[in-house]
Amino acid sequence: MKTKVLAIDDSRTIRNLLAATLEEAGFEYHCAVDGREGVDMYPDVDPDVVITDINMPNLDGFGVIEELRGTGINSKVPILVLTTESAPELKARARGAGATGWITKPFDDASLIFALKRVTGAAA
């Protein structure tokens, strides 16, 4: 069975990039355009891993992590945050909220797949 990814990002470009890489690598790809939609979609998609941006309207990435971890929807699903290079404090904060790991933007295909591998064990 394909590994299901739920990507949450308000940037169409990033969503497209993720979709292209992940679908080619054989993942099942789902996406949401902001944190609120992501959290709402979560139960239906029931993903194996969540990738979320931090800066988003409606509900930001920290909110997503807190809601997924805190409300008991799923306290264990791996959550990867998309961050930019200069934000170690963001990573610390995301981890504090319960993020599993992070993907640094800009990412290449290999590092994206590698990150997913480390949190889901799956290459696809």
Partner: peptide, 16 residues
């Protein structure tokens, strides 16, 4: 364990 990291997956990545 609160962050969703699983040793098993890390080992699989190492195995690669």
């Amino acid at each position: 364990y609160g962050t969703g990291n699983e040793p098993f997956f890390l080992f699989q990545a190492l195995k690669d």
